[in-house]
Design a binder for these strands. Structure first.
Lengths: 226, 226
DNA sequence: CGGCGGCTTGATCGGTCTCAAGTACGGTGG
DNA sequence: CCACCGTACTTGAGACCGATCAAGCCGCCG
């Protein structure tokens, strides 16, 4: 039910983009016409590290995590993707990380070869592939800055990020587990939990459900964020 | 003196590439013809964060660091660049980090507008701009993985990296200070120093000079690295 | 109602930072 | 060539933060 609602709210702007497309979104528009929607169950693998990167992906509904697993078993989550986000785009022939659905998701699956062929003819499309990768780079660099802060700074930055990417209001649905958050921020679930409790006690946030976050004092959060 | 020698050893392969250019290096070849060499003194600023990204850069001799400074004064070094490396390439209009010469350096300075114009006409050049950014992304992701390890793992990975990028032998010149290393690895200079001493005591490395590193036991290092 | 998985809370341990001296090195001038 | 100085680096002691290990709690689903 919830998924169906999400599909509607997401696919409508998509169709609109397919008609009156601003130049800067032509890749998104043209690409989507080449894509086939697919359903992935919660925790289902979308692609694995070192697999051939024959496709790229766009989230229609649900949410996705990309990650690498280190030799000692630790898992580092590289990014979370929301409806509208494109992921799995590689310049080389293989995926550099794995991707899984965080919740039941619908994903547009797009043939890479078709996109590359288009890019070879259309400089505009080529530039947008480059732009997408540059955005990923910027995201990775911001993520690096996150990892050098202390636990509180990491959590606060993360929560503000989540809120910015959500509906815009103060209530945010967190589709990922505490383990996911920990693996994204480079800390244990215990520390994640403690920091959340601490922020709740400080009246900066509220957690009516484990997966529901309400920002109560953005100003205070931004101050802690420094 | 040393600089002149470096310029020679570096500029020769460059000239060779300008003549019989493999397709996959055409950007490097064509771009260099558009560049003007410039000298930067040790610690000299090459560009600053948020400045217009009108140029991109290629190290001829010396070494370069890119970094961001956080509001609380901490500095995070994003990458080190050696002769042959290209840096400062942005997809957007502004630089996202600052860049400084680590030692006295000669840098090829290339007009971005010329490169972009070329890319708009030549799909091959466009693809190589994309490839360069994708390489940066991969580097940033590896750097993230570095930051989640403990101090010993970070140092060991760093040293092995340095050795790989050096002449290939076991002796490596480290042009950067302990502070640079610390800001790259997200730790204090004291911890950097302690880890180096510890590795030296374990006979894994040797530090005849503060800036000279000799790997004595790569196997042991790789094991610590895990 | 029972059981399981995900989350929280508590106590302790260890690693890294911080603060504070001490030391070696490179450059400069006598 | 040596003495001097300043900077960069090393070493040490103590505090603090987050990891670890171990219970306990909550919500969910059968």
């Amino acid at each position: 039910m919830q998924n169906l609602a999400e599909i509607h709210s997401q696919s409508q702007p998509t169709r609109a983009a397919g008609k009156g497309v601003p130049a800067s979104h032509s890749l998104t528009g043209q690409i989507e016409l080449m894509g086939a929607p697919m359903a992935f169950a919660r925790n289902g693998e979308i692609f694995g590290e070192n697999e051939p990167a024959d496709y790229l992906y766009k989230v229609v509904s649900g949410a996705v995590r990309t990650y690498k697993v280190l030799s000692d078993g630790r898992r580092q989550i590289g990014a979370f993707y929301w409806p509208g986000d494109i992921f799995g785009l590689e310049c080389g022939a293989e995926h550099l990380c794995s991707a899984e659905a965080i919740s039941d998701s619908r994903i547009l699956v797009i043939k890479r070869s078709a996109v590359l062929a288009l890019a070879a003819r259309d400089a505009d499309v080529a530039r947008q592939l480059w732009t997408l990768t540059a955005k990923e780079l910027q995201r990775a660099q911001d993520h690096m800055l996150l990892l050098i802060g202390n636990a509180q700074e990491r959590i606060v930055t993360f929560l503000l990020d989540m809120a910015d990417r959500g509906s815009g209001g103060d209530a945010v649905e967190l589709p990922m587990s505490r383990q996911d958050i920990g693996d994204y921020l480079g800390m244990t679930i215990e520390t994640v939990s403690r920091m959340l409790t601490q922020l709740e006690n400080a009246a900066a946030i509220e957690l009516p459900t484990h997966r529901t976050l309400i920002l109560r004092n953005r100003r205070a959060l931004r101050r802690l964020n420094a």
